Amino acid sequence: MIEHRPFFSLGAIRRDWLDARLHFRFGETGRDGHAPLGPLYVWNDDEFAPHSGFGLHAHREVEIVTWVRSGAITHEDDAGNRARLVAGSVQAMSAGTAIHHAERNDEDVPARLFQIWLRPRTPGGAPRWATRACSRELREGRFITLASGDADDVAAGALPINADARVRIATLREGTSMQHTLPMPGSAYLVADHGRLDVGHVRLAPRDGVAIRNQAQLTLTARDDMDVVIVERLRNDA
């Protein structure tokens, strides 16, 4: 089953400096039917205004993967990590028992990002943070795994997360198609970024999402040059 979640149907949080669209209901915000998918329970499409962002705040018992789509954000935490992440960068943070961090847009232009939250496979543990770049050339016509709870993915270069999921990205050119096989049990969430995409017979506009259940294989056809970001569930009991 492929459940279409159009961008215009998503819950929204708007502040003077933040425009966030929620692919999953969080608290009292979002549509009742936009339920979590396995360990995946937050996927926010965020835009930070210049010289704004979240100050130091706490997280615990959550895996957070952030993909920077345009502009740049600056991460800082109480474990001593600090980095400026430009477009085409990903960070993975395991909050563990607790971590305090800040995410700011210190630039003169807006920053756009996807922020993805996953329930941890096992509770507790020490906080952990890492980042890497993934250029458009590297992901051209194929999926690259950005972060994963699978040891083989990590050995191949993915950032480690403590969750039964993997986060991947591909860049597709207009008019191209690809077949993509999902891990069992075949559930995932996919977002079309920057362009239009057909997922089987479901037609996505830019920034639309689809929840995918009980599907072993997907046919993806790009109608524009675009990026596809997907979170795949790795185990039934995730």
Score class of each variant (00 low, 15 high):
Thr171Asn: 12
Ser148Asp: 03
Glu107Thr: 12
Ser94Gln: 11
Met184Val: 11
Val154Gly: 01
Gly124Ser: 07
Val109Trp: 00
Ile116Val: 05
His101Phe: 08
Thr176Ala: 13
Ile99Val: 11
Arg112Leu: 00
Trp117Val: 08
Gly149Leu: 03
Gly125Cys: 08
Thr176Gly: 10
Pro123Met: 08
Arg132Asp: 08
Leu118Ser: 09
Pro123Val: 00
Gln115Met: 02
Gly175Asp: 11
Ser94Ile: 02
Ala156Ile: 06
His101Lys: 03
Met184Tyr: 15
Ser135Thr: 14
Phe114Leu: 13
Glu140Ile: 00
Arg128Asp: 04
Phe143Gly: 08
Thr176Phe: 10
Gly96Ser: 06
Arg166Thr: 00
Val167Gln: 04
Arg136Gln: 14
Ala98Ile: 13
Trp117Gln: 05
Gly96Leu: 04
Gly96Asn: 05
Ala111Met: 01
Pro160Thr: 06
Ala126Tyr: 13
Trp117Arg: 00
Gln115Gly: 09
Leu113Trp: 00
Pro120Val: 02
Arg121Ala: 11
Thr181Arg: 15
Pro160Lys: 09
Gly124Asp: 04
Glu107His: 01
Thr176Trp: 08
Gly175Trp: 13
Ala98Gly: 13
Arg128Phe: 12
His180Val: 07
Ile144Asp: 07
Thr122Gln: 12
Ser94His: 14
Thr97Gly: 01
His100Leu: 04
Pro160Glu: 01
Ala95His: 09
Arg121Cys: 07
Gly124Cys: 03
Asp152Gly: 10
Ala163Pro: 04
Ala151Ser: 14
Arg136Tyr: 12
Ile116Thr: 01
Ala155Tyr: 10
Pro183Cys: 03
Asp153Tyr: 02
Arg119Met: 07
Ile99Arg: 06
Ala133Glu: 15
Glu174Asp: 14
His180Glu: 12
Trp129Gly: 05
Ala92Trp: 03
Pro120Ala: 08
Ala170Tyr: 06
Thr122Asn: 13
Ile99Leu: 00
Pro127Leu: 05
Met93Gly: 06
Val167Met: 10
Phe143Ser: 03
Thr181Glu: 15
Arg128Tyr: 13
Ile169Pro: 08
Ala147Pro: 01
Val167Cys: 05
Leu182Val: 05
Ala126Pro: 07
Val167Ala: 05
Asp106Glu: 15
Ile116Phe: 07
Pro127Gln: 04
